[in-house]
């Protein structure tokens, strides 16, 4: 991306603003490919991790970058999931266009709600987002003619990707399909974060009032952010529906909204890779813990969250940073 900006000769200002790709960033993608080739028993878990990473990334833009905390992000995940599921169920089973349509639809919903939410700050915004999420949850439960109610939306299947790659029970297609979308969206998010808009989001987080006084159209920024963040969350929901051929009505529940926030905090807010680290750590612990202690896994997650909040700055990614600094210091000593 902004590679030329880091080249020698680039001005200091350009170098300060540049967020060049680093070779280390290949690691998660290589790890994903390693899982694909070497650990195919875990493809289903891997696919759901990819879905959650995209969901957590969408929240990171809102909460990590712009500092807008929400307990209603499941609303967009659920909207995207049902949009993709309903499209497939009613005859539009081509996955790529289905996902794009679900994403755009959710972004429109997010923009409309964003117009309202942009008026609110702090606790009022948190409570309103949570209330909107609860309304969607109850609505989806009761509109069983459309959503399948408590039984969830089922009885649909996706057409092969590009008309060639069939969705097998082993989940190879689903895994690569989800991974490819994550890569596409991640590159877009990476550009966004390096853009003047990305910088403005940090400005909103650091000093909302001052943003207005440098002439920033803060409402417009926030609405634009809601459009983008909700669209990405909708894409994650659509991926979930398409790869599992099922939509659980609980996609709208507050557990999902709170869960993704916990994952993000565990991983580290406002740095994109926190979404990767948080989701992987959370879901691995969930997976292992629920095997050994099916009734207590929430306890373990809770203890982990406490440990992160009390002992680390910036979650797992913050911890990795701290370790790397200590290592560098020892090297140079």
């Amino acid at each position: 991306m902004p590679r030329d900006a880091t080249a020698p000769g680039a001005s200091i200002g350009a170098r300060i603003l540049a967020q060049p790709f680093s070779p280390v960033e290949v690691i998660p993608w290589l790890a994903a490919l390693a899982v694909f080739f070497l650990a195919s028993d875990y493809l289903a878990l891997g696919t759901s991790m990819i879905v959650m990473i995209l969901f957590a990334l969408s929240l990171d833009l809102l909460t990590g970058y712009a500092g807008i905390v929400t307990l209603g992000h499941a609303l967009y995940f659920g909207t995207g999931a049902y949009a993709a599921g309903l499209l497939a169920k009613h005859g539009w089973s081509e996955p790529l266009t289905g996902l794009v349509m679900a994403t755009v639809f959710t972004a429109i919903v997010g923009t409309l709600l964003g117009i309202v939410l942009a008026e609110l700050r702090g606790m009022a915004s948190i409570m309103t987002s949570m209330a909107l999420g609860l309304i969607a949850y109850e609505g989806a439960k009761n509109a069983s003619w459309l959503t399948g109610g408590d039984d969830g939306l089922q009885g649909f299947s996706m057409a092969p990707v590009f008309g060639v790659f069939r969705w097998s029970v082993y989940g190879h297609t689903a895994f690569l399909y989800a991974l490819a979308w994550l890569l596409v969206f991640f590159v877009a998010i990476r550009i966004l974060v390096a853009s003047p808009f990305g910088l403005a989001l940090k400005g909103l987080r650091e000093n909302y009032g001052r943003m207005q006084l440098i002439g920033a159209p803060v409402r417009r920024h926030v609405i634009e952010l809601y459009a983008i963040s909700s669209g990405l969350a909708g894409a994650a929901g659509a991926l979930s529906a398409q790869t599992t051929s099922f939509v659980d009505v609980n996609v709208f529940s507050i557990d999902v909204s709170a869960g993704v926030l916990v994952m993000l905090v565990v991983g580290g807010l406002g740095r994109l890779y926190g979404a990767f680290a948080g989701v992987i750590v959370y879901m691995l612990i969930h997976n292992v813990a629920s095997e050994f202690a099916p009734f207590y896994w929430m306890f373990i997650i809770g203890a982990m969250l406490l440990a992160v909040v009390l002992f680390t700055r910036g979650g797992v990614m913050g911890l990795i940073d701290a370790m790397r600094r200590t290592f560098m210091r020892k090297q140079s000593a």
Binding site: M1, P2, D4, A5, A10, G13, A14, R15, L17, A18, Q19, I191, L192, A194, S195, P196, F197, G198, L199, A200, G203, I214, G215, A216, P217, R220, H221, E224, I228
Partner: peptide, 20 residues
């Protein structure tokens, strides 16, 4: 730079690269 990009009206464009 944040003030400059607000003045220049590019702060709402997520596809631009700030360092360019």
């Amino acid at each position: 730079f944040m003030a400059l990009s607000e003045r220049a009206g590019i702060s709402g464009k997520p596809w631009l690269i700030a360092s360019r």
